[in-house]
Design a protein around this nucleic acid. Structure first.
Lengths: 218, 218, 218, 218
DNA sequence: GATGAATGAGGGTTCATTCAT
DNA sequence: GATGAATGAACCCTCATTCAT
């Protein structure tokens, strides 16, 4: 938003221009797709929320599905970018692993669109991911980070050996992802509001302790 | 299906009758809803799959949403029933906990409609669950089982203390649920077919080891 | 209702039997058709209101339209019967005419289904009336009564001459019918509840005075 | 229709454009609603008759009921506009009243959609009128005109006193409205075609004479 | 006579998409 | 680039009617 202001200098108040419209559509689409899914989202709603003409969806993105794909790609680029920022080399194995666990959990908390978007994409059997060479080539550095950290921990005698980095990655992600993806049904079943801050903090602490405990040497 | 054959003896081939139609609609609906979600499912498709007239959906269930709710209620009744069958009292704490973990994971494997149905219901903010007094009163015995088993294990010195049964339940469920709910995107990202039997077996083994390890005393 | 009680003696509490079902269907149909019209009425609603099985509508009357026609015929038979009861011969012309005017107005008041049923039938261009030889042969004695009374009044010098009995009949009917047929829009436009008793009484008085005044000799 | 021709000069033959579509839909809707009523009218039929795409009904009016309301509002605006054109001040009381009576009768004759539309709206208990602030604030000047004319006539000794303008308005309207609203059943009952010109002329003459006679002083 | 189950033909409405400036 | 107007394909649901005891 601030970037557009600098670029489009001719109309300072009435924000228009191609980049601005694209940006607003993407933001609105991310919001609506994450709340309603691909099928449940309405092109009209996205256009209305973005404040730009509905036709521009087709002008910029071709159709609804391609807009959806564009959102997915951006979302993946963002998380990969964040993952790359993680600097674990200077940390001791346990601290590094803890940071990894926290990052994974906190990412879901701080980016609430992420979990439902992935959930919806899985409902569609990841068809869009498969079609996106962009995303497929966007390898997550996390698995390798986990592998390295594990090795260092095993060497230092603080982690047990025999753990597969991919399985561990899925476990770490699942401990947080499931909490958020199923937060509504779980809240009903347990009769508590799991979206409330204290509940999230409690879950976060549990996940860290639980995962680190699972890594202790025999 | 086989049950009806035994009961309705008068018309062995031309399967009709209210119970049969309801049953077939529920089965087809479960199938379609789990694959397409509430919004993506077509009443036409459910009727065609069930082999009964489309309008019977409205005759028996009122509308699409109520059919969806009926499916959800049945699905919850089934898992609760299965959970109640679990007999852990005669097992040592670790074996009991292992059985619990296995049951949770295997239920997702054996009932492939379960994970996507819950995923979709969460996309709708669990609105149907909230409206269903039936489901809300269908308390899961699992949390209490976990609590009891934990206590026994702590007393026996084989589990660490301080674990909240609800958090542990969420963790155990999440370790399996996430694997299945995100199986398509994970398969793409990791370039493996996680639905394949060996992959599932590997995941199952990992989850059991991971969770049990996390419970070991300090 | 009281008639059925005497006829069906075997089941004094659970009223059933062919005549009873027919009767209840006709009563319910009259009620619903007068409130919703032929197109707006639902066979389900009529059956539910009558308390008999929907199928019996078809058993007894063939289809919805024929049930509608049966209602219309009964309604016409009733008003003709009432009209025949009018005994004006022994009254002086003005009193006779006043009685005629009152009867016409009061019939609409006392039989609230009559006006909307006729209104609906006119929406259908009186197609059912045309098809009903029963109704077409059910000549109203009113026009003749009006003619006779007019003649007596003219001879007695209390009515002006040159009035066509049919036109006068339409006028007398219209003065009351329109009030009831348009009672809802008129109530909105004038901001008064014309269905309230005082409003009806006021209208009744006006109609009598107005019509009698119109008949005075020049 | 002729107006558009003058304004839109660029496409003289292929009439399109928003105003044109709206106009054609309203005209077709008025026609169909007046013949079939709200419930009996088919959106398909209205679209076909208007020659525009069916979905434009929803684009311009939202839904069927709102289209119906738009028709009603336009119909009321038209009659109110016509009523306002009446200039009675320069006429003697009797001539003024005669003009009022004629106008009321002739309006029904010249606008054959008016009577059935009001009839249908009354079948719906004037729900749409109630919801329309537009119509409710569209006060008819007729009642006041009648009141003024009555007063002038009483002062001049040509009308009797004690007449309520609203009651008189209802009477004048009813004398013509009923003839048209029930023209089909009346035609059947009396075995004449009341829609034929001579019949209408006869009725018109009767109404004028009848109403004026009713106003004569005692 | 009476009843629940089943069916076919629409009907109103939604929605992604395209047209035409 | 941007916009309002227009369109066709579905989709959910209703309802009169018939079937089958």
């Amino acid at each position: 938003m601030t970037i557009e202001d600098q670029v489009v200098k001719k109309r300072p108040t009435v924000k228009r221009g191609p980049e601005h419209s694209r940006r607003r559509l993407l933001d609105a689409a991310r919001d609506v797709f994450s709340k309603k899914g691909l099928g449940g989202a309405r092109v009209d709603e996205i256009a209305a929320l973005s404040g730009v003409n509905k036709q521009l969806v087709y002008y910029y993105f071709g159709n609804k599905k391609d807009l959806y794909l564009a959102v997915l790609e951006e979302v993946y680029e963002e998380i990969r970018e964040q993952e790359r920022q993680l600097d674990l080399a200077h940390l001791a194995p346990i601290e590094a692993m803890e940071k990894l666990i926290e990052f994974t959990f906190d990412y879901f908390t701080d980016n609430p669109h992420f979990v439902p978007l992935l959930g919806d994409e899985n409902l569609h059997k990841a068809q869009h991911l498969k079609d996106s060479t962009v995303i497929r080539e966007l390898h997550s550095p996390l698995v390798e980070m986990i592998g390295t950290t594990l090795e260092r921990g095993v060497a230092a005698g603080v982690f047990r050996s025999g753990l597969d980095p991919i399985q561990l990655y899925i476990s770490l992600a699942g401990l947080g992802f499931f909490y958020y993806s199923n937060i509504h049904t779980l809240s009903v079943i347990f009769g508590r509001d799991l979206k409330a801050k204290p509940a999230v903090a409690e879950r976060r602490a549990h996940v860290i302790k639980f995962a680190l405990s699972a890594l202790r040497p025999a």
